[in-house]
């Protein structure tokens, strides 16, 4: 249990730092979805199965879809997204 929590927390914080450091915004959205997915596993370990279900479906699924579609609408979905603000 403790080692599983340690592994999940380390992976989650690493993905959270990647959200801020990745140049590609699509990769940053994917990293945010990874954070939500690992967080839902932590919720399941914390005896909150309803919160875990909601976080996995809404936080990782719907939120990632909204952000990715927004990126496409903003024209930032390409590689090297932060350089092409002309």
């Amino acid at each position: 249990m403790a080692w599983l929590v340690l592994l999940l927390v380390v992976l989650m914080l690493g993905a959270a730092v990647l959200v801020l450091l990745l140049d590609n915004l699509v990769a940053a959205v994917a990293a945010a979805s990874v954070v939500s997915l690992l967080l839902s596993v932590l919720f399941a370990l914390l005896a909150a199965p309803d919160v875990a279900l909601t976080e996995a479906a809404v936080g990782a699924g719907l939120s990632g879809a909204v952000l990715a579609l927004g990126l496409r609408r903003l024209g930032l979905a390409g590689i090297k997204a932060e350089d092409d603000h002309a």
């Binding site: 959200v19 801020l20 954070v35 967080l39 932060e82």
Partner: peptide
Amino acid sequence: HLFRLVLALGLAEAGANLLLV
């Protein structure tokens, strides 16, 4: 970048949720 701020807001909110649980 403004989009990065939206992502960071989501991260902070996830941390607050975990703290509440």
